[in-house]
Each structure stands twice: as structure tokens, then as C-alpha cells.
Nucleic acid binder design. Structure first.
Lengths: 332, 332
DNA sequence: CTGAAAGCGCTAACAG
DNA sequence: CTGTTAGCGCTTTCAG
């Protein structure tokens, strides 16, 4: 309905051919100033703007990309992936790319829709199943990974400097005099968690601090689980850590709950540091020290890489790392 | 690239015309069982699936809709709008609609892109500027509102039953014996906030409880602001409320912080109830009682309405309200 | 129930 | 620098 003006209308009104109108919009420098002006004027009168669908059809390229979040049950509700999405959205908008956001739940449906919707490239967030990646590769669809890294593969990936973040947090704790530092860890089944975990162990060792299995507690991603883990860590009176490094802010919230239940004051009796610098940090009392990650930037880098891939650029940066920064608040 | 099979390939391989192949995919009942089978087989062999772009081109309808979040600075990062987005995304996927997510920041850009991307309908989340709405209407683009209601307009809108949620929370508090109930309120400049605010006042009055301006504190959407507001509310010893009804969970977090700073225990000295039942609730200690809103459902309803609008259905429900439910936790 | 053919709005050679 | 022309892959009358 409202059938908007077409290139023909503009062509007629401005007195030039449709080809010229087309050029005027896609590559203005290729038409004479005067002609360009006539075209723009006519377009303005008709309220014309090129039809992206027809354009895609003719150019045989759709400018459609997808952001697929690979995390069980998680979607844009996960603040971390949402922030990345935010960055991707903005960049995509700027570059006039269509973005399709989806989860990696129903593969069949996902691949089918990617096919019929003519998705030209995908950004895979989180721990993507290698088989899914292969599916895209076999369809010749460029892939970039975010928050994930597959060693030995040629896929560009963008991640945060997790190790540096961990180091900053830990050194801050050490500087504050802490020697017994415990860790509320997540399952080490993802790139991110694994990085954080290993950096923790490495860093403590480097500083000559003890790192016993007893001071590291694995748990699930729920508050219940992190709370229980923290409680266990804090229960043993003799070996009680004076500081808890939490693998993310949710884990830190668990540590807060555990501390409160055990009557420990933060930061007097226990220092707590989180990771991700999520919106949760200022909500907690005392406000949570955490490691900030520029997720928006990560998202932007993703579309940058993908765009390069789509343009068959050579020498694309395979591994992009955004810096992290410790935000010190009142919990440490 | 990877130039996938077209309808011509399928036509050739199956020995029927392209028209029939087309019918087979868009309206299977219109072709004979045997023919259909041949087509499907050929399609399977060729790994063919209809090209959505070409389809849109031919049908002159793009099946593209947009979800525009109208909230300063807020985007999908806002958990509330993200949950709605989640619901919209799922429904859109199911109905094979393309979804464009955006914020109402740069109007010009937004309208231009909506035009060239051939957006056929929009869902406006939050307090949309009437002028923006008019822009869409003048372009004959159907609009549905979510979390907003414009009296006197014909636009379908979907909202939550805020009043009932407030009532549930308040009556729960009253039942627990509270008589002095304060409110940490937000600016009453949006449909949602205004609903919650008025429901609060009305409900207290109905129950014969005092509702003085001193027991209601307006504040901004930040924790800093809500904390300060709660602190003020709790400071005056003689009139101190024994319960705080918070306009949302962030406000409740503020109340927690204030209580902690003033040495008040929750729920012994002060009961706190939030609103939205966000992921924050279980993170706080004690866990926060809050009003649950089925945002996913709201999102689904939005695309339902929009779809009806696009199909020019008659008698579309103008006002859809999803129920709310108080989730009682340990803070009350 | 099926086929032929004319587009949908735009782009991309290829000429001029 | 600009115009002509032939599609891009699919749908849709209109006949048969």
C-alpha cells in the first residue's frame, strides 16, 4: 500500500534515465553535479528513497547478517550478550546492514531461515557448537566468533582481554593486603570461563600465593549455586579467605548473600570482586568492584570483521582483543 | 555466491512449470499430490528453499516489522524492554517476519531507514513521542503500542495489569500488618509509572490508610537517586514507614541500600516490595518480593495485533492487558 | 490443476 | 558522463 515512488517516477520527473538515478544514489560521484541536483530534487518532491529489497534483488547481495547467541536458554536477556548485541546493532545500522538476532536453539529452523532469508554472514556469540560452525562454512557463509576462540581454526574472533582483567583485580586485592584469595568459579566449559579460571591460577602462582583446590569452588550460573559455593568457601574458619574473586557479577552477588548469612561484613571481613561490570554492581551494597568489558566495542569489531570477510579483504585480523579495566568500588 | 538453486532449477528437474513450483511452496493444497511430491523431491535434491527477497519483491510485501524502543538511552539493555523484545523476536520468527530492532534516537535516520527497508509495521515500546507516531501514521504504517496507552487514539496497545500488581503487593503488605507504607516512586511521566503511582494512592485510600505527600518520594531511574529517596523516607523516626513499596526493582535495590546504611533489617524492621520481578530479585539478600509481568507474552501480543493490522482484519482488540502476579519472597 | 508470460524496482554491463 | 537493455527469483493473472 501507500505505493511509494519508484526509480521510474524519479527518472521521469528529473528527465534522466533510471540508470542515472540509480547511480546518483549508489555512487553520487559518477554523475555530474547538475544532474545529481536534478535527481535529488525530484526525489525530494516524490519523497523517494531506494527500495532496499529491489536493490538486494538486483545486486544479488542482501546485506543481511545474523547474530546468533549460543548459550542454553540465554538470549538478549543476558546482559553480557545484550551489550554485544547493542554494539552490533549500532554498527549494522550505520553500515546499512540488516541484522537478524537469534538463538542457537533450533538449528534446523535456524539454518533454513538463514538460507531463505539469504543471510550472508553470521556472528556467533559464546560457545558455538563446532558442527553448527561447519554447517555455515559448508554453505560458504562467513563466520566471526565473539567471546569464543577455536584454536587451529581460521575464523576471526573477538574477545576481551580476560587475563588482564583477572590480573588487575587480583593485584588490586593483593595490594590491599589479601593473601588468602578464594574463587567462586563457573564451569570451565566456555572460552571465557576457562580464560578467567586459568588467569586466576597463574596470577596467584606468579605472586607466590597459595592456590589450593579448596580455595576454588565451581558452580552453576545461578545465584543459588554461587551462593552455596561462596558459603562453603567461607565456612571453614581456619582457611577462610579474606577475599573472594568471583568469576562474574552474579557470582559476586552470591558471595554477598553468603557473607550476609554468615555475618561477615564487606569489605571489612571479606573483600569481593566481580567481573563484567554489569548493572548489578551499583545495585549491591556496598557497590561491587568489578572488571569492565567494553562489550559495545566488541560488537562493533564483530561487524567490522564480518564486513571485511564479506568484501573478501585479505589479511583480516584473526584475533581481536578489547582491553578490560578494573573498576574499583566499595567492596574491596 | 554459492548461488543456490532457483525456482527454475526445481522446475526443470521436476518437469513442472515455475508457477507450479511456486504454488507448491506457498499454497501446497493447490497442486495435485503427485505433482507436489515431485516438486518436493527435486527441491530436496537441489537443496532449494524459496528466496525470501525475490518473494518479497514479487509479492510487494516485505513482511518486515520494527520494534522501536522509546526510552532515552535505553535499549535492549533494559531488561524490561529486552524481555518484550524476546517475545516479539520469537513470534516474529514463528511467523516468518523480519524484525528490525531500534531505538527512537535519531528520528530522521529511523524514518528514512524504515522507508527504504520497506518496514510494513512498527511496535513502539514505551513513551513514544506523538509526533513520531504521526509520522508513521501519515506514511500509512500500522503502529501498535506496548507499555503505553494514548487515550483517544485508535492504536492497539498492549500493557500489563499494573493496577492489579500494585494492589496485590499492597494488600500483601497490609495483610502482614503494615499500616505505614511509603513509596519510592519514579517520575510520573510515562504510562507505566503513572499507572503504578495512581494505583498506589487509590489502593491505600480504599483501605483507609494515610497517604501523605511525605510518604511518597519521587526520584530518577538511577540507584543513586532511589537510594537517596529511600533514605529520606526512612530518616524521619516518628513517621518512618514500616514498609516500602518500590515502583520497580531498581528502586527496591535503592531501598535495600538505604536500609543497610541506616542499620534497618529487612524484613524485620522494614518490608520492601519491588516491581517487575527482574533478575535482580534473587540476587538481593534477602530475596526481593516483586510483581511479575509476563513480558514475553506482551511481545507476542504485539506481533499478533500488528499482524492483524497488516491483514486489515476488522475488530482488532484495541486494548490488551496481560495479568500480573505478586511473587512473594523473603523481603516482606 | 497447470503453464505462459508479464512484471516487482533496481543494477550492471555495454554503448554512445 | 549518461542512456539502453537485460535480467535478479519469484508471484500472479489469465488461459488452457
Amino acid at each position: 500500500m501507500a505505493s511509494s515512488a519508484t526509480i521510474y517516477d524519479v527518472s521521469r520527473l528529473s528527465g534522466v534515465s533510471t540508470a542515472t538515478v540509480s547511480r546518483t544514489f549508489s555512487d553520487p560521484d559518477r554523475v555530474k553535479e547538475a544532474t545529481r541536483r536534478k535527481v535529488y530534487d525530484a526525489a525530494a518532491v516524490l519523497n523517494y528513497s531506494p527500495n532496499a529489497i529491489a536493490r538486494a534483488m538486483a545486486r544479488q547481495c542482501t546485506d543481511r547478517i545474523a547474530y546468533i547467541i549460543c548459550k542454553k536458554g540465554a538470549t538478549i536477556l543476558d546482559e553480557f550478550y545484550a551489550s554485544i548485541c547493542e554494539g552490533i546493532m549500532r554498527s549494522a545500522n550505520r553500515s546499512d546492514l540488516h541484522l537478524l538476532v537469534s538463538t542457537a536453539e533450533d538449528w534446523g529452523q535456524l539454518l533454513r531461515s538463514a538460507h531463505s532469508k539469504q543471510i550472508e554472514g553470521v556472528i556467533l556469540g559464546g560457545t558455538a557448537d563446532p558442527a553448527l560452525i561447519s554447517e555455515f562454512q559448508s554453505r560458504k557463509i562467513p563466520v566471526v566468533l565473539v567471546n569464543n576462540r577455536i584454536t587451529g581454526s581460521e575464523l576471526p574472533c573477538v574477545v576481551a582481554d580476560e587475563a588482564s582483567g583477572v590480573r588487575q583485580a587480583l593485584e588490586h586485592l593483593i595490594q590491599r593486603g589479601h593473601r588468602k584469595i578464594g574463587m567462586v568459579a563457573g564451569r570451565v566449559n566456555s572460552y571465557v570461563m576457562s580464560e578467567r579460571y586459568h588467569a586466576f591460577v597463574d596470577c596467584l602462582k606468579e605472586h607466590g600465593l597459595p592456590v589450593s583446590p579448596a580455595s576454588i569452588k565451581m558452580c552453576e550460573a545461578t545465584v543459588q549455586s554461587t551462593t552455596a559455593a561462596a558459603e562453603e568457601l567461607l565456612r571453614s574458619p581456619e582457611a577462610r579467605p579474606t577475599a573472594l574473586f568471583c568469576i562474574n557479577d552474579v557470582a559476586a552477588a552470591g558471595a554477598y548473600k553468603a557473607a550476609r548469612r554468615l555475618g561477615l561484613r564487606i569489605p571489612e571481613d571479606l573483600a569481593v570482586s566481580g567481573f563484567d561490570d554489569s548493572t548489578l554492581c551499583p545495585m549491591l551494597e556496598p557497590e561491587l568492584t568489578s572488571v569492565h568489558i567494553d562489550c559495545r566495542r566488541m560488537g562493533e569489531l564483530c561487524v567490522e570483521r564480518l564486513t571485511q570477510l564479506l568484501q573478501h579483504k585479505k589479511d583480516i585480523e584473526q584475533f581481536s582483543m578489547v582491553p578490560t579495566e578494573l573498576i574499583v568500588r566499595r567492596s574491596t
